[in-house]
């Protein structure tokens, strides 16, 4: 199965064309990202990763074009599109979701979603090597305003232990009891909170960003209508008391 994969959830833009062997698919309740779904393993035909704070809206489409060209595939050769609807920056997840939805409309290819933190965990595990059977891997990203996005994994090939969540570092600590390796841009805040509670946490790769190149082994789920996973409401308050009083009726 050939998939076009892309991610623009945080401070990078990445695209890959991967070839996966289809494995068992269990699509019972499509509620939690990656908790059920398809597990793939396979190879990367071509990929590209560019770190950037902004500019994903400029680079994504040209990068898709370049990577597909290097992989020598056209849209007709693909079996699906895969992207992360979050967690991520609001604009970042919308770039991926709008692109995936329009590509799906145009190509009629099925769409698969995965957690940006699962992609982060897969990258960490491939670069760190085995974490040890008794360790939990916490994939975290800085969510600003004293919060982090966090999702726990035993091992990227198995289903995640939790859904992606938005928590303060202190509350995030409450998720773990076993020895933990924490990665990603939320790692420093997580480690600091863990230290004050004397939890066994080891920080690795605190600058890690999700990268579509590592999508071959992660859990994905087929979706009919891809929707952003914001985990946070818009920052807006209803307005009151702005109009001049009227004669009551």
């Amino acid at each position: 199965m050939r998939l076009l994969v892309f991610d623009t959830s945080f401070s990078a833009c990445s695209v890959a064309v991967i070839s996966t062997s289809e494995t068992t698919s269990c699509r019972s309740v499509p509620s939690a990202l990656g908790l059920q779904g398809e597990s793939h393993s396979g190879s990367v035909l071509a990929s590209s990763y560019e770190p950037m704070e902004t500019g994903q809206a400029i680079r994504l489409i040209p990068m898709i074009e370049e990577v597909m060209s290097r992989a020598s595939v056209s849209f007709g050769d693909l079996d699906g599109l895969a992207t992360s609807p979050g967690p991520g920056t609001f604009t970042g997840v919308r770039i991926a979701v709008a692109t995936a939805r329009a590509l799906a409309l145009s190509t009629r290819l099925p769409v698969f979603e995965f957690s940006s933190l699962a992609l982060l965990a897969a990258k960490a595990q491939q670069t760190l090597g085995p974490t040890g059977a008794d360790h939990v891997l916490a994939a975290t990203m800085d969510a600003r305003r004293d919060a982090i996005y966090i999702q726990l994994f035993e091992n990227a090939k198995n289903p995640p232990l939790t859904k992606p969540q938005l928590l303060t570092p202190t509350r995030a600590i409450g998720l773990v009891s076993s020895p933990t390796i924490v990665v990603g841009t939320g790692a420093a805040a997580f480690q600091k909170a863990a230290d004050t509670r004397h939890r066994p946490v080891r920080m690795q790769q605190k600058d890690l960003q999700p990268d579509a190149t590592y999508a071959t082994g992660i859990h994905m789920e087929a979706v009919n209508s891809l929707r952003p996973l914001y985990l946070r409401p818009p920052d807006a308050k209803p307005q009151t008391g702005k109009s001049i009083p009227r004669v009551s009726q």
Partner: peptide, 19 residues
């Protein structure tokens, strides 16, 4: 508004690329 513009722009570019 940039957030909205990006949604329309990405959709148009994705259609242009794939077609």
């Amino acid at each position: 508004l940039i957030g909205g513009l990006i949604v329309g722009l990405m959709s148009a570019k994705a259609i242009a690329l794939s077609k």
